[in-house]
Design a protein around this nucleic acid. Structure first.
Lengths: 339, 339
DNA sequence: TTGTAAGCGTTATCAC
DNA sequence: GTGATAACGCTTACAA
């Protein structure tokens, strides 16, 4: 700050020029305040020539809260997480809220994340699936900072949650594989540790059962995380023993599916969809690439984002409202891996 | 705000409990202020029991500027852009700055972007390559808001820029293709409209010339944007006429390369790397997938992010300092598409 | 080193 | 509808 000249006009400047009081200026820029059309016009004119803009920091201070929303997300490299970011930013901005990005993977940031955001008197917090521990969310709630989450177990009292309809997605996948003639099924993904994975697996298994598929024809291949490498590993595992090798797999995420496909093709010579059918989950960009053309269960990112922001802004208005848990529908996208 | 009970302790509460003045509290939390070790300790203790944290909004207001940095980026779905986000957030946070995300693709947001961020008295703005128009950057600078950019033409007086060494990257690609025995070269990408594309193409062409490759053996295939679809289109174009069909191509970005590879393989039966060698640029996640194993020129995202944040914080400290233009080195990553 | 007091730019309250 | 005035929570001269 070597240059001390003030670079912005303040309300008083505008008031003086327009020949009104500071209050009149303030009211002009406060939606729903009572100002006569005449003074409003005079103020706006003066504001324009002076290039005046309300200092939102000052406004926030007096109102005791800001319009910032912490968006805590992990694995920004995860394509699905990244796809969620744009609609979240969009829907926040339509409600006058601004997203502050916090990367939960970054130990430097995670340590300070809670405190930092609290120091900023943020209006609320959005957490996407993955790393951010529940303890963190709990701390926010204790300080009466609204928390809304996407694709997380609704186990936190007072936090709003929107989840994709994972179980239905699993059922859709089961149906698609079954209809394409698969006889030996497999689920690949983190179906014990991960909330979404568990639901997807559950829906898949239940649907197969009600389609009359015997349990012995369904293999569950658990992975630690939902990554490309995990998919590759799973393929090596499943195709090692020829008698349990599946001819149709449902993967917990598209990334897992890509890894599975690549390994099945390269190392085990499977042709897709002739020898092997695959269904993924998420509908990330990669799924549409010509080398994969992966049939998948698409999450509705725009609806997820819109809902999470909607719930959050409702809780900002009324912190004590009952917790809201919503389900976003999913859709089967048929490409080339299901015949 | 139905609940009016105050949820945070303020400096006065801490002062009272510690038996000191408000100033002492303030000084304790202001790095480099003069407080005796004894009072500092008393204050810290009281702050801890009261769970006090400085209200950064108030601090920002009195200091006339905030610690928020607008990160204006377009095409968040672009994998490379997304990969840049995490390190930017990281390096900002190490300097006590917080990223506010603005999606330049969103017309709703772009319209208000300038004004909104100005209203927040943001400390500065980071722009990544792509959409955000130069006029926007100019407006910020006029209002003395520091602007730093990644991978953009350094055509704006007073804005700092860090670019990857695109020309050297092009040269590395040329060398790699040449060494692997390519005889008919092609560049695919936006080499007229796009700053980075132009530099990459230039470096490629120059290096081929100095390697003694005749100009007639180098085809330049211009595309409007650097997308997967553009790569597919380019392949159809280049392989349509058998006599100009290249056996080695350098693509302006990895996404273009993926499209080119897929189309070359599927529609024109090219085997890679036997019939066709490919080099990309960026080193996005996709490049490492088994179906591609794309040799590419890797950008150093961490250095790009660190530099842009460094330049920005220097300009925040001194707005009038001479503009800084830096170059980040790139590296060739050999995978399977260059033999 | 410490406390006192004067702001920072805004909005909320209250008379008029 | 309008204008004075008092907050909001903090930092920072200035004086002690």
């Amino acid at each position: 700050m070597t240059d001390k000249e003030k670079s912005w006009a303040i309300a008083e400047d505008v008031a003086r020029m327009a020949g009104v009081s500071r209050s009149a200026v303030s009211r002009t820029f406060t939606p729903g305040a009572s100002v006569s059309a005449k003074t409003r016009m005079r103020v706006l004119e003066a504001a324009k020539t002076l290039n005046y803009h309300v200092d939102i920091n000052a406004r926030n201070m007096i109102r005791g809260r800001s319009t910032f929303v912490g968006v805590i997300t992990s694995a920004l490299v995860s394509p699905f997480r990244a796809q969620l970011l744009a609609p979240i930013a969009h829907h926040l901005s339509t409600r006058g809220l601004l997203p502050i990005l916090m990367n939960a993977d970054d130990p430097d940031q995670t340590g300070y994340a809670l405190q930092m955001l609290l120091n900023y008197r943020i209006a609320g917090v959005i957490m996407t699936s993955g790393a951010p521990p529940l303890a963190l969310a709990r701390e926010y709630l204790e300080r009466r900072v609204p928390v809304a989450m996407i694709n997380r177990a609704p186990e936190l009292e007072g936090a709003d949650v929107i989840n994709s309809d994972n179980a239905s997605g699993g059922a859709l996948a089961a149906r698609a594989l079954f209809d394409s003639g698969v006889t030996r099924f497999a689920f690949v993904g983190p179906h014990t540790t991960h909330f979404g994975g568990r639901q997807r697996c559950g829906g898949f298994v239940d649907a197969l059962a009600s389609l009359g598929v015997r349990k012995s024809r369904v293999t569950l291949c658990n992975t630690l995380i939902a990554s490309y490498e995990a998919g590759q590993l799973a393929a090596r595992e499943l195709f090692a023993a020829a008698d349990t090798a599946p001819d149709g797999v449902f993967c917990a995420t598209d990334m897992v599916a890509l890894g599975f496909m690549d390994e099945a093709r390269r190392t085990f010579g499977r042709r897709i969809p002739d020898d092997l059918r695959v269904v993924g989950f998420d509908d990330i960009q990669h799924a549409a690439l010509d080398s994969y053309r992966l049939s998948t269960i698409a999450q509705n990112t725009d609806m997820l984002a819109n809902s999470v922001v909607d719930m959050l802004s409702q809780r900002i208005a009324d912190f004590s409202r009952p917790a809201d848990v919503r389900i976003a529908p999913v859709a089967f996208v048929r490409r080339a891996t299901t015949g």
